[in-house]
């Protein structure tokens, strides 16, 4: 296969995943959330149980007026949604679906993923400040505090599994994974998942958005396509966090017939975790800002450090 064709296929596959998976998750959120609340959710778009609702939403967003507030910093304001979306695109590049099935295999994929995810907070600050709106600014400052705090347990938990596997490459970690790691790395998996939820600002960690207090946080002033970009970033965020938890802690493509069906196992695990993320959103109320920081610094960080010690101890014993 010529190089350009190979490259084209990889880019096309990543773009397809980038555009389709969030829509599937978004639709699942519509329906699951509705049924958990005794409703039925969208039923009309696309005739069969509203399967085309998000496509209709997309069409609606495109038609809406693109408003930039008069006092806003125009360039920063317009750049922010793209900065919010871009890191996730890079992360999806590195996530292995099956054995040898990865868009871009990197020696230190884990580090890249964590580093690039950290860029998301810059987008939050950009949109928050440039909107020239006090609710936006408050949301942005909350977001920055939250993302900075939760990056620590996230990285520590990921470091634990990297230590266990002895590699920073994502496919390498999956290859080194054994079923008993589910118990050994369970606290790390828990911490990573919770901190990941906070990183993508999903309920119960959605204080930066907090629609009942801050209108819509840093997205308050956004309309039309730019707002849709932020929403898309949120759903890609769900995919990314679910995929990373799958790859790091749930053994990625491991399962029966993993040579042929590895990609299916990965996708199944991603969808199961996405379901849990949606489930959390329906079940739990939003945390208060001080409860959020307390959870991070007093529970997750010490737990992550303890897990590091445990991992090191078990690793040196083996």
């Amino acid at each position: 296969m010529p190089l350009w064709l190979d490259l084209l296929i990889r880019v096309a596959a990543v773009m397809a995943g980038f555009l389709v998976l969030p829509l599937v998750i978004g639709q699942a959120e519509h329906k699951v959330m509705a049924h958990m609340q005794g409703r039925v959710g969208p039923m009309y778009a696309g005739a069969f149980h509203g399967w085309a609702q998000l496509i209709a939403d997309g069409v609606k967003f495109v038609q809406k007026e693109d408003i930039t507030p008069r006092d806003a910093d125009r360039t920063v304001f317009r750049l922010a949604p793209i900065v919010a979306l871009f890191p996730y695109l890079v992360v999806i590049l590195t996530i292995p679906l099956g054995p040898g099935l990865v868009a871009q295999s990197l020696d230190i994929g884990l580090f890249l993923v964590l580093a690039v995810l950290g860029i998301g907070v810059v987008a939050v600050l950009m949109s928050a400040w440039a909107s020239a709106n006090k609710y936006s600014l408050l949301g942005g400052v909350r977001g920055a505090a939250q993302l900075l705090a939760y990056e620590l347990p996230l990285v520590l938990a990921a470091a634990s599994v990297a230590m266990a596997a002895g590699t920073l490459s994502l496919p390498g970690i999956v290859e080194a994974w054994r079923p008993w790691w589910l118990i050994w790395q369970a606290p790390a998996a828990f911490i990573f998942f919770i901190a990941g939820l906070a990183e993508i600002r999903r309920p119960p960690f959605d204080m930066p958005i907090a629609d009942s207090e801050l209108v819509f946080g840093y997205m308050t002033e956004y309309t039309g396509l730019r707002f849709a970009f932020f929403l898309l970033a949120e759903y890609v965020g769900i995919v990314v966090i679910a995929a990373l938890t799958t790859v790091l802690f749930l053994g990625g493509w491991h399962g029966p017939f993993e040579e042929q069906l590895g990609w299916l196992w990965t996708l199944l695990k991603i969808f199961a975790l996405s379901f849990v993320i949606i489930w959390f959103r329906v079940s739990y109320p939003r945390l208060r800002e001080d409860q959020l920081q307390r959870l991070c610094w007093l529970i997750l960080v010490p737990l992550a450090l303890a897990q590091l010690v445990l991992t090191a101890a078990v690793k040196s014993l083996l």
């Binding site: 049924h35 958990m36 005794g38 489930w279 959390f280 329906v282």
Partner: peptide
């Protein structure tokens, strides 16, 4: 409490919704 919350929402999901079309 956390588990109870999850159980409540899950049980509701498995039941028929009360929506009138």
């Amino acid at each position: 409490g956390l588990l109870d919350g999850l159980a409540v929402t899950f049980k509701t999901m498995t039941r028929r919704s009360t929506t009138q079309q």
